[in-house]
Design a protein around this nucleic acid. Structure first.
Length: 222
DNA sequence: AAAAAGTGCAACCGCAACCTA
DNA sequence: TTAGGTTGCGGTTGCACTTTT
């Protein structure tokens, strides 16, 4: 099977896998646009990258998802929405594609969504409200390396779902009042607010969660 | 036994973000 | 600063395999 430019598509053969593996062992990962030529493969760079990341890369965990993995996926999805790479990053050996496929074929069927209050399926299924924080990056100079103890409490609170009816983290439900966020994160959040031109706390989780999303969440969840 | 429907997973596609000259 | 090239992401599709009718 070949595409319009004579590039092969479809399932990979053992021979192709072998060529790709040897190429990456020799030249390392990255520079994907050069990989097809270096490996002697009649495949596009995207296809090579995907095959490596989702199938050939060492340490990829295959087989059934464990209960704790499923639980973590559900909780992280509740926080992050369809940010599969971020979620997979917290599941050692699992790829974003695996997590996405698992979600679409297993979890989505058993976990219902409520988009409106009083949805007719509310009685039958668990209620999940997906929060999709707008991605933005904390300016480097503000992204300090500190990991205060309280961040653990903060994350636990987030994962326990202290959300109000709008799906926002309700700071009144715990000890994380506006002024304490700065202390918790050990960062100049007010300065960040000014710089990004966006309120951090008033918008709830979606606005300031990304401040902490890059910390080593896995450690915090263990 | 055969056809239809369902399921799971690998792979493709389009696009936005990032990089670099 | 900007434009072209590259990378990475999420959504979607295609297909082989399994289950049901």
């Amino acid at each position: 099977m070949e595409g319009p430019l004579g590039v092969r598509k479809g399932a990979w053969t053992e021979e192709e896998d072998d060529l790709l593996k040897r190429c990456i062992q020799r030249y390392g990962e990255g520079r994907w646009h050069q990989v097809p030529v270096k490996a002697g493969l009649n495949r596009c760079r995207k296809s090579c990258r995907l095959r490596w990341l989702n199938y050939l890369k060492p340490n990829i965990k295959r087989g059934k998802f464990e209960d704790d993995e499923v639980d973590l996926i559900i909780r992280l999805h509740k926080l992050l929405g369809n940010r599969w790479t971020l979620i997979a990053g917290r599941l050692p050996g699992r790829t974003a594609n695996d997590v996405k496929n698992y979600w679409n074929s297993h979890i989505r069927k058993t976990v219902g969504y409520c988009t409106k209050k009083g949805h007719k399926d509310d009685q039958k299924t668990a209620q999940i409200k997906v929060i999709k924080p707008k991605p933005w990056t904390l300016p480097r100079r503000l992204a300090g390396p500190s990991k205060p103890e309280n961040e653990i409490l903060l994350w636990e609170s987030l994962l326990d779902g202290n959300q109000n009816e709008e799906g926002m983290i309700d700071t009144s439900m715990n000890s994380f009042q506006d002024q304490s966020v700065t202390e918790l994160l050990g960062k100049e959040t007010s300065a960040a607010t000014e710089e990004m031109g966006r309120p951090l706390v008033e918008e709830g989780l979606g606005s300031w969660m990304d401040l902490v999303v890059d910390f080593d969440l896995w450690d915090l969840l263990k």
